[in-house]
Computed example of a mutant assay.
Amino acid sequence: MFTRLLIKGEKVITRQKVVHVVSDSVGETAELVVKAVASQFNGGHVEINRHSFIESTQDIDEAINSVDELNSLIAYTLVIPELKEYLDRRSAEKGIFSVDLLSPLLHVFEDFFKQEAKHQPKLIRRMDEAYFKKIEAIEFSVKYDDGKDPRGLKWADLVLIGVSRTSKTPLAMYLAHHGYRVANVPIVPEVAPPKEIFEIPRSKCVGLTISPEKLNEVRKERLKSMGLNAESNYASMERIFEELDYADRIMKRIGCPIIDVSNKAIEETANLIIHTLKRGRGL
């Protein structure tokens, strides 16, 4: 079984059984259905010719004119009623078998959801684009997590900064699942922040802060989970005050908005960040 894309207007004369897939999108869905059905006959040996992005009656005429009436049938996925009706009429005039792969299920869905279908082509492609945008955002946020390669900050939609255990990474991953490319940078007194953080627009930078008491509690739990001494300098109040004070100075130098995450769930903080981001860009 193989697929051949047609040049518009080409006439196919062959004794091989051919299924012409006609679609207002790429035609992948219809082709998969045809292959699944064809596998039940003659070992699945059928030629498939795909006619993609059908948008007008002229496109349908070109597809019809390329069909060998004696050895072909048309399987189509057209959501615009006028084009579907035109294809049905033209194929009937030429004596070509044609089958509508969408309408039966579409009508069932209309009854099930108690609403009419949108009848807009290429919607699934838009869904695919949103999916791939999310995957790209997740990969970006992993790549530029925890200050990895600060050169990537200029490509981020959003940069989160804050001391350790202010939920920078969980927030970055959550926002990435909503399509935002997020980088995050830890603020540590002994390490100067990357110069790139002062070069990006402050409207796409958000500082995260937390109460000293809450941070002390979180860090002690973190040390315990790792089997370490909960009384180490990492969780001491003196160290925490030092880090928070240093981070506050950096955030004020940048001029970015600051969000206190002390008693907020990840979802709540993320919504605040999105609101802050949109407001900073005048959206």
Rank of each mutant, 00 (worst) to 15 (best):
V191N: 04
Y180P: 00
E217A: 08
K35E: 10
V37C: 04
S98V: 08
H275W: 04
P194Q: 02
M237R: 13
R151H: 07
L223T: 11
G282S: 10
R151K: 15
F53G: 01
D111W: 06
E268G: 06
V218R: 09
I210T: 10
L73R: 02
I274G: 02
N49P: 00
I197V: 15
E28L: 14
G282R: 14
E85P: 00
A230Q: 13
K168L: 09
F41P: 00
R253S: 14
V142A: 05
K8N: 13
E221P: 01
F132C: 04
V99M: 11
N263G: 06
V185E: 08
S39P: 00
G27W: 00
A30N: 09
K214L: 05
V79N: 02
K8F: 11
H177K: 15
V108N: 02
I48D: 00
S72W: 10
I96V: 14
A230Y: 02
F41R: 06
P121F: 12
R125T: 13
A117P: 04
I210D: 05
R151F: 05
L101M: 14
L160I: 13
T169V: 14
F109T: 08
S23D: 06
V159N: 06
Q115C: 05
L153C: 03
V22E: 02
T14W: 03
F41K: 09
V182I: 14
E199S: 12
A192F: 08
S98Y: 08
G255C: 13
L244A: 08
D146W: 12
L175W: 00
K118T: 07
E28V: 12
R4Q: 15
V18C: 02
D111Y: 11
P257S: 12
I210R: 05
R202P: 04
K195L: 09
L78P: 04
V108L: 14
Q115E: 07
D61G: 05
T166Q: 03
T3V: 12
K134P: 04
L83W: 02
R239Q: 15
V142G: 00
I250G: 02
K148I: 09
